[in-house]
Simulated scan of single mutants.
Amino acid sequence: MTDIPNDADARRAVPPVICYPTDSLPAADMSLYAAARTTLTSVSQVIVPPRDAAVIEVSAGQFLRIHSVQGPQVGDLNLFSADDLSEQFYSGKTRALHGTHVTAGDRLWASFPNMRPMATITHDTLDWYGIDEFGGSVHDVIGTRCDPYTGRLLTGTDYHHCCHSNLTRALAAHTGLSIHDAETHVHDVLNVFMCTGFTRDTGQYFMKASPVRPGDYIEMFAEIDFLAVLSACPGGDCSSEHSSDAAACYPLEMEVLRPADGTLDRWVPPAKNKYDRSHGA
């Protein structure tokens, strides 16, 4: 162990500074979305089978709800711009701007170079959970997704129904891409309904039983046209393990809803990021 400096306590006591203050971010018009929500009608639904994934198309100005329909189940969500798969959900920047877990009022940001809101979370029936005594909370943007590569490293075996593989298969089937080409687009996820945090002693990523129950949902407003690809995680409620066939798993539902005509007249679609991309060259 290295020598502890005499001023170690003073160094630890330096107060933190928020890396990305969000006061100047374009504000989501939550009152507009709330009014539109009162007029919603369902236009399409898809069931996501346990240990598998599905895709649904969402148009700008529509709402997407992800429902728990049968039992406690978490899901791994990827978002892609409908006309450009390279524009996709950027979990790291979303985390940097909004925190480790997201809820109503937070936005799901797109990757560079567009870096614009893809969706705004408008309702969350699990917002009551908050942060528990372990530091855990719901809907995280800190985890990646269970994948066969990490599984191979840790267990020496191959498992094909982890979320990474589920998302890959679903995207390939929807787009006509090969499995290998589709895999290059699969990215870090929004862990819908998953309850996670970091241990205070070792700083390790942990999961615990999700508080989600049938009837719960998270809802988001589509700021752009996007594809939502959702995997029903093989870990079920993630109370013990993932990437296995041992956990009890249940389906999830994705539902697209349309507001009444005229309710979004003052909504303005988000512009692409205006950085000139010169990078000082």
Rank of each mutant, 00 (worst) to 15 (best):
I18M: 08
D127H: 14
I56V: 04
E183C: 00
V256L: 03
I224Y: 02
M220K: 05
P49R: 00
K208E: 14
I224G: 01
F63T: 05
V74W: 01
I121V: 14
A172T: 13
A96Y: 12
C249Q: 15
H123Q: 15
T94P: 07
R51K: 11
G135V: 06
L77F: 08
D276I: 07
T120H: 10
I47W: 04
P269T: 08
G236L: 14
P148K: 00
T263L: 05
Q88M: 12
K272H: 14
N166W: 04
L25P: 06
L177G: 09
T22W: 10
S278M: 11
S278Q: 13
A170N: 04
T196F: 02
P5E: 09
V212F: 04
P16W: 01
M115G: 11
P49L: 00
F206V: 15
G105Q: 10
N166M: 09
A228D: 04
E253T: 02
P16G: 06
L79H: 08
A172Q: 12
V43K: 02
A53Y: 12
K93P: 05
R145T: 05
R116Y: 09
R213P: 03
F89Q: 04
T168N: 07
L230Y: 01
V192I: 14
H161C: 09
S243D: 12
D265K: 13
T39N: 02
R12V: 08
K274I: 15
L126V: 11
C249I: 15
A28I: 11
L227N: 01
S178Y: 11
M118C: 09
H160R: 03
D76A: 14
V43G: 01
S31T: 15
M220N: 03
L230K: 07
V55E: 00
A119H: 04
S68W: 00
L257S: 02
S243L: 01
